[in-house]
Structures are given as structure tokens and as C-alpha cells.
Amino acid sequence: MSLTRQDLDKIAHLARLQITAAESERYVSSLSSIVDFVAELGKVDTQGVAPMAHPLVGQVQRLREDAITETDQHERYQRNAPQVQAALYVVPRVIE
């Protein structure tokens, strides 16, 4: 099965990735070959096999008490932010 340029552009948009026209050509070809490569799995009889949920048998995700464990460290964390104003992350205008 081969992906088209339209498929690729749709995937890139879903993934919120800007892809140049030249990149797009190359990705159509390499993603098609990856999709073909993994399509081999379709031939396996997996009737009645539960999809694996955890690598270790019987392990489940732990729960913890619903208690506050984090302290307010926003100044420290926001040092890595591209743009901050009044302790808020600044993004382009969303609502006109």
C-alpha cells in the first residue's frame, strides 16, 4: 500500500508538523515503505490474543492518594519558557 501526497499532508497536519514540499516527497516514499514493512503483522493469526497492556505480568498502574504533593515553583519552571508575562505563558491571540 502506498501513501499519497494528500495522505502525508493530512498526517503532518494531525501531528502539527510543518513539512516543506521537498521533505514531503521524501516522506511519502519512506513512510510508504514503513507502512508496507509493518503490514506484515496483518498476516499473523491473533484470534483471541489480548493486546499487551504492560510488559510485566500482573502489573497494573499504581494509584496514589489524591493529595497535594507539588509546591508552587512556576518561576523556576518558567525560566525555560520562550515568552512569559505576569506568570502566564504568552501565545499568539486565539480569540478575536
Partner: peptide
């Protein structure tokens, strides 16, 4: 993009779920 594709509507069962079954095998 590969991940986005295999998780997208209409392909999830054929790829992701299938792979997790083979992983179990």
C-alpha cells in the same frame, strides 16, 4: 508521522492493536 498514522481513525485496530497482540505472542 508513522505513529500518528498508525493511531489515526480507521487504522488503530489494523496497526496498533494488532502490534500489541503480536507483542503479547
Amino acid at each position: 508521522m508513522t505513529g500518528t498514522y498508525v493511531l489515526s481513525a480507521g487504522y488503530y485496530d489494523a496497526y496498533y492493536l494488532k502490534a500489541q497482540q503480536v507483542r503479547q505472542l
